[in-house]
Simulated assay, not measured.
Amino acid sequence: MNATLAQCTLTAVLTLAALPALAGDPSVCKTPLPKNVQKMVQSFDDCARAGDPVTACEKLQLNARVYDNAQGLLPKLGALGPKYWRAAPRLLGSPQGLVYLVQEASKGKPIGKRYYTADQFASFCQIP
């Protein structure tokens, strides 16, 4: 009986460890952003608010896409309202990228939060 209990406990622990944690806001970026990322922030500030961010960002040499937050590293969003948009340099293999929380339905599409990833969207820090 103890072996069964131990096996069930181990299974439960492993299952919980595999689930993504309920993410809160990542911590604020501790170091200054690289100069090329600072430029990317300025560009993405403009194109993320556009009616068609994908096309607007292409003109600024950024790849922009809706970010699904599948790994659960950023706070969960409801089905309606804000969306996460991600942008990365058009250079293939660039590890740097941005994710913005954008209020889609609002006039001017206000940006709620900005996040930066230096490791291909495996972790984030919040841009102040």
Score class of each variant (00 low, 15 high):
residue 63 N to A: 09
residue 27 S to R: 11
residue 72 G to E: 00
residue 104 E to Y: 09
residue 26 P to Q: 03
residue 20 P to A: 11
residue 91 L to D: 15
residue 100 Y to F: 15
residue 77 L to I: 05
residue 13 V to P: 02
residue 78 G to T: 01
residue 127 I to S: 02
residue 32 P to G: 09
residue 58 E to P: 00
residue 17 A to M: 12
residue 33 L to Q: 09
residue 121 F to T: 00
residue 67 Y to P: 00
residue 32 P to K: 09
residue 25 D to C: 08
residue 50 A to L: 11
residue 113 K to D: 10
residue 55 T to C: 03
residue 89 P to M: 05
residue 61 Q to V: 12
residue 29 C to Q: 00
residue 54 V to M: 11
residue 94 S to N: 14
residue 97 G to E: 01
residue 51 G to W: 09
residue 123 S to F: 09
residue 66 V to R: 11
residue 10 L to V: 06
residue 69 N to R: 02
residue 25 D to L: 11
residue 116 Y to L: 02
residue 48 A to W: 01
residue 126 Q to R: 09
residue 59 K to P: 05
residue 2 N to R: 14
residue 38 Q to V: 07
residue 93 G to R: 04
residue 29 C to W: 01
residue 29 C to D: 04
residue 96 Q to S: 14
residue 72 G to Q: 08
residue 116 Y to W: 11
residue 107 K to W: 10
residue 72 G to D: 04
residue 17 A to T: 08
residue 77 L to T: 01
residue 30 K to V: 05
residue 47 C to V: 04
residue 118 A to F: 07
residue 91 L to E: 15
residue 95 P to G: 10
residue 116 Y to H: 07
residue 31 T to R: 11
residue 52 D to V: 15
residue 57 C to M: 06
residue 124 F to E: 00
residue 45 D to S: 09
residue 99 V to L: 05
residue 1 M to N: 11
residue 10 L to K: 06
residue 66 V to M: 13
residue 105 A to C: 11
residue 41 V to E: 04
residue 127 I to E: 00
residue 83 K to L: 12
residue 78 G to K: 09
residue 113 K to R: 15
residue 96 Q to Y: 14
residue 38 Q to L: 13
residue 77 L to P: 03
residue 4 T to S: 13
residue 79 A to T: 13
residue 45 D to V: 03
residue 125 C to I: 01
residue 20 P to Q: 13
residue 124 F to M: 06
residue 22 L to Q: 13
residue 68 D to W: 01
residue 70 A to W: 07
residue 5 L to M: 11
residue 63 N to K: 14
residue 121 F to L: 05
residue 58 E to F: 09
residue 125 C to V: 04
residue 13 V to W: 01
residue 48 A to V: 08
residue 16 L to Y: 14
residue 49 R to G: 01
residue 56 A to T: 03
residue 12 A to L: 12
residue 106 S to I: 12
residue 11 T to W: 05
residue 92 L to V: 10
residue 12 A to G: 07
residue 25 D to H: 15
residue 100 Y to W: 12
residue 65 R to W: 03
residue 111 I to H: 02
residue 124 F to R: 00
residue 40 M to Q: 01
residue 45 D to Q: 14
residue 114 R to M: 12
residue 6 A to Y: 05
residue 117 T to N: 01
residue 51 G to R: 08
residue 36 N to C: 08
residue 84 Y to Q: 02
residue 50 A to V: 14
residue 93 G to N: 01
residue 69 N to F: 09
residue 96 Q to C: 10
residue 78 G to M: 05
residue 3 A to L: 10
residue 35 K to F: 14
residue 81 G to Q: 13
residue 84 Y to F: 12
residue 6 A to H: 07
residue 109 K to I: 04
residue 114 R to A: 07
residue 40 M to I: 01
residue 21 A to G: 13
residue 62 L to K: 02
